[in-house]
């Protein structure tokens, strides 16, 4: 059964977390909960990217005692998605901090975090 291998499990988990995050962003009313849902969605994308780059029975892309310079191409997993995820994690931290700051500002203006109570964005 190929679906019990680690890359399929992590891929399925990533896609499921994507759905959970999307559902949270659409359905929740509290701004903090929306931000948490966004973080879940963000993490799910990292998981999907890393599982795309995973190759079974291969090791981390670091040249050491196990992997030599010459046979690196046959022994390591894909280093490129890992580099992209490294970038994405840092951007995610920045975006989350920015969203929390906006939430703080909105709370100090309106004294509520429920988006139903905000009138200024409705038409």
């Amino acid at each position: 059964m190929k679906y019990f291998n680690i890359e399929y499990i992590s891929m399925a988990t990533g896609l499921f977390l994507f759905l959970v995050g999307l559902w949270g962003i659409i359905s929740q009313k509290n701004i903090i909960k929306i931000i948490i849902s966004f973080s879940v969605l963000d993490t799910s994308i990292h998981l999907i990217l890393v599982s795309i780059g995973y190759i079974r029975n291969k090791t981390a892309p670091i040249i050491d005692g196990v992997v030599s310079k010459t046979d690196a191409a046959t022994k390591i997993v894909d280093p490129l998605p890992q580099a992209l995820v490294l970038t994405a994690i840092v951007i995610g931290v920045g975006v989350t901090a920015l969203m929390l700051t906006y939430a703080l500002r909105m709370y100090s203006e309106n004294k509520t975090l429920e988006i139903n109570k905000y009138k200024s964005l409705k038409w």
Binding site: Y8, I55, R56, A73, D78, L80
Partner: peptide, 23 residues
Amino acid sequence: LFQEFSAYHGADKLNSISEYYAK
């Protein structure tokens, strides 16, 4: 997403860009 998942199959070797990086 289910379509994505059913089309996904684990890679068994590096793609050309990553192979360049590894070499």
